[in-house]
């Protein structure tokens, strides 16, 4: 599978990672090589195989649907690069 530079840029945009021209060129080769290598999975017949959804066959535990945590907005924003009155502050998104 060859990944061209335009695809690399599209993927980087989806992943919200800015890449330089040099990085885009490098990644074109690296991603293509990795995808070529995983291509060997197509040899495996998986027609009648269920995808694995859990590693051990346990049923998930359920608990009472009650609030067990909260009332700590100050702790939640404590590590934010920018906050005001317990709100996260981001650049303006609506003109």
């Amino acid at each position: 599978m060859h990944v061209d530079e335009a695809t690399v840029r599209r993927i980087a945009r989806l992943a919200r990672i800015k890449i330089t021209d040099d990085e885009a060129k490098g990644l074109e080769g690296e991603l293509s090589a990795i995808l070529d290598w995983v291509e060997q999975l197509s040899e495996v017949d998986t027609d009648k195989v269920e995808p694995m959804t859990r590693v051990v066959p346990i049923s998930l535990k359920q608990r009472e649907d009650v609030v067990t945590d909260g009332e700590k907005a100050d702790e939640i924003v404590a590590n934010a690069p920018m906050s005001e009155d317990d709100f996260f502050v981001v650049p303006k998104v609506v003109e």
Binding site: R16, K18, A80, F88, P91
Partner: peptide
């Protein structure tokens, strides 16, 4: 994403800040 914790590098808008 530079909003809730860790570092932030400001960009020209929100998406640019993420990127």
């Amino acid at each position: 994403d530079g909003v809730r914790y860790g570092m932030r590098k400001p960009g020209k808008d929100l998406i640019d800040t993420y990127e």
